[in-house]
Amino acid sequence: MSSGQIDVAYVAKLARLALSSDEVERFGAQLGALLEHVQTLQKLPTADVAATAQVIPSVNVMRDDVARPSLPRDVVLEAAPQRQGSYFRVPRILGEPG
């Protein structure tokens, strides 16, 4: 584990979050303090310990591959920020912007 330093601007880019320079500074200090706190985990001997993702033993849960009714299309599209007919309208992701 490294010391309590975090490149907030870089992590924000990974997280798709636009941050102001004030936020970069403030969150940097706060997250640094948290990272310092979690350094305490270095004291735990974990070399031979298995990781726990969740505590209830369960294997892959399957259901029959049968079509079932889904939510009504119009009700769901009602919540869209922008819609066009029966589609979500979203920004262009391919080609030239325009």
């Binding site: 584990m1 490294s2 992590v11 969150f27 706060q30 997250l31 974990t46 990781a51």
Partner: peptide
Amino acid sequence: KRRILIGTYALSSGYYDAYYVRAQKAR
């Protein structure tokens, strides 16, 4: 935002084992 940032950091390349996996072992 703070939690998204710390979580993204803990899962990011180079830090995943040091933070996330270690926490899962502590768990």
